[in-house]
């Protein structure tokens, strides 16, 4: 079994393709949607756009309950409306689920706090996109340093650290000593030594498999699990055991 904590889809055709491959690989997809059918993904989505995205996620979760764990996309800038959206999704779904935060606002901005309070209440893991690279970051992208601040300020929330910071060598250093984060290895190229470094500095208990498909292939991102020089026990933790434990302690009521 595999749990992929980081999956998007651009079109229904791509979702079908991802589900087909997930079936073959015995993989569960933590699915979030940040675009409508074949549209771009706006960095600063309106509330109605977010709701429409989550409707797509909810539909996929309903149709494929064995394969899809919904991650509700939120734009915390919308304040109470964002919280209401989350409350309603949690009440309706009543199963394993999580939250996706992208780049509408930095994760350590105070406007994110109410959303994170709800995540703590329902024990929803939060997948936060992070990025830092020599080429630069966008103004509202959350850097690994800001991700660290976010994790320290919300010790009762479990964070999935998207892309391990993008520059994984930078990201992993920022994650040192944090007990409420899991490094999501998805999205960047399958670079030799990547996973070994995360495991060496944080332990396999703090690493989870994510692919960032459909932009990436499952194969290239699974290479970060099957390629590294780590033990089978560590591999299993990264592939599914760590993520399964997260969902196992959720409260839905």
């Amino acid at each position: 079994m595999i749990i992929d904590v980081h999956v998007h889809y651009r079109s229904d055709a791509q979702l079908a393709q991802a589900l087909c491959q997930a079936e073959r690989l015995d993989m569960v997809l933590c699915l979030n949607t940040i675009n409508l059918e074949s549209t771009a993904s706006p960095h600063f989505p309106s509330m109605s756009f977010v709701t429409a995205c989550n409707d797509r996620t909810a539909a996929a979760a309903r149709e494929h309950p064995q394969r899809v764990i919904p991650f509700w996309y939120l734009n915390p800038v919308h304040g109470d409306a964002a919280c209401t959206e989350l409350q309603q999704r949690v009440a309706q779904h009543q199963g394993p689920q999580g939250v996706k935060l992208w780049m509408a606002v930095k994760g350590n901005d105070s406007c994110v706090d109410p959303v994170l309070a709800l995540c703590a209440k329902h024990r929803l893991p939060v997948l936060q996109h992070t990025n830092i690279e020599a080429g630069g970051t966008l103004p509202t992208e959350t850097t690994p340093q800001e991700m660290r601040e976010m994790a320290l300020r919300h010790p009762d929330v479990t964070f999935l650290w998207g892309h391990a910071g993008s520059d994984f060598e930078y990201g992993v250093k920022c994650a040192l000593g944090l007990g409420n984060v899991f490094m999501d290895i998805g999205g960047n190229e399958a670079t030799n030594g990547y996973t070994e470094l995360l495991v060496r500095l944080l332990g396999a208990e703090r690493v989870v498999y994510g692919s960032d498909t459909t932009g990436r292939s499952f194969a290239s991102q699974l290479a970060k699990v099957y390629g590294p020089d780590i033990t089978e026990e560590e591999r299993e933790k990264i592939l599914y055991k760590n993520a399964a434990a997260l969902f196992g302690r959720q409260r839905y009521d």
């Binding site: 491959q21 399958a190 670079t191 290479a223 099957y226 390629g227």
Partner: peptide
């Protein structure tokens, strides 16, 4: 692209 990349990426991409 060894040693820069995990060779498994290219291998699995074809196998899958």
């Amino acid at each position: 692209n060894l040693p820069i990349n995990y060779a498994e990426s290219a291998k699995l991409s074809i196998e899958y």
